[in-house]
Design a protein around this nucleic acid. Sequence first.
DNA 1: TCCAGCCCTGATGTATACAACAGTTGGGCA
DNA 2: TGCCCAACTGTTGTATACATCAGGGCTGGA
Lengths: 230, 230
Amino acid sequence: MKDKHPTKTRPSRAQWLREHLENAIVDGHFAPGDRLDPVALARDYDCSRTPIREALQQLEASGMVRVYPKRGTFVTQLGVADLVERFDVMAELEGMCARLAARRITSEELSALRRAHEACRDCLDGSDADHYYHANGTFHHLIYAASHNAFLTQEATRLHAILKPYRRLQLHAYHRLQESFAEHEAILGAIERRDADAARQAIQHHVQLQGNRFNDLMATMPQLRETRPE
Amino acid sequence: MKDKHPTKTRPSRAQWLREHLENAIVDGHFAPGDRLDPVALARDYDCSRTPIREALQQLEASGMVRVYPKRGTFVTQLGVADLVERFDVMAELEGMCARLAARRITSEELSALRRAHEACRDCLDGSDADHYYHANGTFHHLIYAASHNAFLTQEATRLHAILKPYRRLQLHAYHRLQESFAEHEAILGAIERRDADAARQAIQHHVQLQGNRFNDLMATMPQLRETRPE
DNA sequence: TCCAGCCCTGATGTATACAACAGTTGGGCA
DNA sequence: TGCCCAACTGTTGTATACATCAGGGCTGGA
């Protein structure tokens, strides 16, 4: 077969900005509700508004930001109901990933997953929430990839990124790290046993629990909506 | 509570173009693989390249088109493997919709769903494939909405739109309409009985069958990749 | 003092001009 | 005659200028 579009070219300025801004949002540099001022960003990144605008448009399409016409662009601020909906869908997608992963994971992928799990344990020992946060992301992403469904992986990754800023908020809850790790263990065990249904159930439980935990957290601090990073 | 951004404003030119082009692609005006020439579109719609570009960028983010840097923008052309992946995810999402719909559907929504089902039957009698195609879309969308999960509805609708151009190809297969209708009947019945698991299984079977059918169709006509509408 | 209407300001949305780059084609050289 | 390099061409990517519009403040009247 012939490759129809084999050319690999360096990413455009707008593309680079999209990734950069997405990371900035996911990593909490911009908080939900913050305004993204195109002219300020253009100054910061030393370019015109055009690539900034394109990057913001793409971020809107992926749900990271919300553009209010003639009003400005703001980092998506999800209400409790919105989050519940997204965690429900996330649980379903991750459940599908785990189900497929249990059937399709290769030995190399399984080794990587075990290593990621051990990395989580290391962060656990030091009660290093931020590092656990990162290792946790790796663990989940490896399961997505092990589904061997590129589209599913892409969608799960996107939704995971959207929820990441909110997930961060519940990390420091007491014993949450230990609980999370124990749930990971159940997931990994089910995948190792190639028990697709158990893996699906375990990870769905894991994600739903995150959603519920977050829901509780929101209920106890309703003033959280105005949080600014500065 | 106070509305933070209550202003409703008329959609911008780029926004309008996005919807218009999306419909044009979904309705088969542009075939997979067709190039979308910004300057030609700018002439056709009597505007500059700027809003065209923004519309195309947004379409790329939703997966409808693919932009090859410095090469051009083309309607997404999915290979067999890509389609299988997407039909799998579609089945999972629709399964979730049906499961939730069985539990949450209101009597009004159920009435609307029954009416949509009857509309399908009418198209069936006349062997009117195009109209059945449309009524089928309504039926599915009503199930999405009955899940009462706006995010899930949005995602399912988006994926449904991406697959629509390909779904069209298998419509005229012998007896497919009758089979499809019978499957709808099973889905509707399960929802009426509030049998969440049966509804999920029925619709997953329905979607997977579409995927498989399509797969068969592709296998029998490999030259289909160069199809043009003109 | 309060309200209504208008202008002003600052932002976004669009048009146009220019720059940079991939693919191509033609000429020069071995 | 065949191959390689270079300028060309047509496209996309970016910058800038202009148009348009929402919101806020001001002024005038009751």
